[in-house]
Amino acid sequence: MRYLVFSSFVVTSALSGCSLYYESQAKDMVQRQMDAMVFVEGGEFMMGNPGGWDGSKDSWPPHKVVLDDFYIQKYEVTQGDFDLFMAVTGYEPSDSRYEQMRNKAPKRFSDHLPAVASWIDAKAFCHWLRRETEAKTSLPTEAQWEFAARSRGKLTKYATLEGQAIPNKTMAPGPEQFVRDRYPYKGMLPLKPGTFPPNLLGLHDMSGNVSEWVSDKYLEDYYERSPVKNPKGPKEGQKDIFDGDSYRVVRGGNFHDFEGNTTVTRQKGSETLAEDTRGFRCGMN
Results as ranks from 00 to 15, higher is better:
K235Q: 09
V116T: 08
Y22S: 11
R108G: 07
T263S: 14
G174S: 00
K157I: 11
Y75I: 03
M29A: 14
A274I: 08
V66H: 09
F45Q: 06
K239P: 00
N199Q: 06
P167W: 01
A122T: 01
F39I: 03
V116E: 01
R266T: 02
Y3N: 06
L200Q: 14
H256N: 11
V228Y: 15
V30L: 08
V38L: 11
L189C: 05
P106L: 02
S110A: 11
P93G: 06
L155E: 09
V116G: 06
M29I: 06
S211V: 02
M46S: 08
A135M: 12
Y223M: 09
V214S: 01
S226G: 08
V88W: 00
L15D: 09
R278Y: 07
Y98R: 04
P93Q: 00
A143E: 08
I72N: 04
S94G: 09
V5A: 06
P175Q: 02
E236G: 03
V88F: 02
S16L: 13
G52N: 10
G17L: 14
T263L: 08
S24K: 15
V30F: 12
S151V: 07
Y218S: 10
V228E: 14
R225C: 09
F6M: 15
V38H: 13
E236K: 12
I241V: 14
P234Q: 01
W60T: 15
P50A: 00
S7T: 06
G174E: 00
R281S: 01
A148T: 11
W128Q: 10
R131A: 04
V179G: 09
L200D: 10
A36G: 05
S59K: 12
P184K: 00
L273K: 14
F109Q: 07
H256A: 13
D28V: 13
T160F: 05
S19H: 02
T170H: 08
A148Y: 06
R182I: 15
L129S: 03
E41I: 07
V179E: 11
D121A: 06
T160D: 07
P234K: 06
D245T: 14
D276E: 03
R108P: 02
S151D: 03
R182M: 07
G42C: 11
D257L: 08
V210I: 07
V11H: 10
M284Q: 12
S8I: 10
T137N: 04
T170Y: 03
G48L: 07
N49M: 05
A115V: 04
N285P: 10
Y3S: 08
Y247I: 04
E44C: 09
E271A: 12
T170V: 08
N285R: 13
N103F: 11
G269A: 08
A143V: 03
R130W: 13
G187I: 05
A36D: 11
G174Y: 00
V264H: 06
D58V: 05
K123G: 11
P62W: 02
R182L: 10
F82W: 09
S226A: 12
F147P: 04
D54E: 08
T263K: 05
E176Q: 10
E41M: 14
K64Q: 15
K154R: 12
